[in-house]
Amino acid sequence: MTTTPEPDDFLEIGGTRLQSRLFVGTGKFGDDALIPAVCEASGAQVITMALRRVDLDAGPANLMGHIPAHMVRLPNTSGARTADEAVRIARLARAMGCGHWIKIEVVADSRHLLPDGYATARATETLAREGFVVLPYMNPDLYVARSLADAGAAAVMPLGAPIGTNRGLRTREMIAVLIEDLALPVIVDAGIGRPSQACEAMEMGAAACLVNTAIATAADPVGMARAFGRAVAAGREAFLSGPGAVRARASASSPLTGFLGQDGGRAPQEVAP
């Protein structure tokens, strides 16, 4: 395999060392039985899920039965419209006995599904104080990000594009600001539709990417999961390797001297300054 990460390169969140920098979601799969193979192919070590009322006629879904034992469970607070609702859902999720990580999602606008940064910061503060490892989903806004850091977030999760759109890193410049400014890991969540976009986020210095829709709605989710795992690892290795400078003008990759039939070692024509 060419995707083996550097042995000493890991992402530490809430005291857990992660070798994989791809987080995967469990929504929208045509068949939840694909989830174990998606986990295996992607190499992901963190997986998200949501909490909902049981349909008393149908019984509970068997989602957790499909999640490999070694995965870190990252329940989300989707459905919360206020900070109090997010706190309530987080406490219920923890009572399920699947750990104390929580992805805070407070969305009051059902049309755009954009997160409420102020309510998210309030919920983060409460839950961090209660010992949760809090990963808030957010708009990539510098001041909201600093509020979340001050509130005790373990990482921030800015959106690349609106949830479920597969439109890629539309917020690229603002995510770059967060990466440059924050001491916390920046995990790009939402909107990533292609492995190349996840790779780009990692090249920029993102700590990880969370991908759900792009994998779950692919024609071959397992193949797409493998592609995302490789892309995230490649982007990380590129970031660690220090990408070369971007130039406005051409700069030859091959020597401009020593051409055949040339006099005195001079280039055949002057190179523009």
């Binding site: 979601g25 469990t26 929504g27 929208k28 799969f29 939840d32 998200t48 899920m49 949501a50 909490l51 909902r52 009322r53 049981v54 008393l56 509970p60 879904a61 989602l63 957790m64 329940p75 989300n76 989707s78 219920l92 999720a93 399920m96 699947c98 949830i163 479920g164 939402a190 969370l210 759900n212 829709t213």
Partner: peptide, 10 residues
Amino acid sequence: LEILSFVGGG
């Protein structure tokens, strides 16, 4: 009473 369980989500 509210009875809840985990379902697929991102």
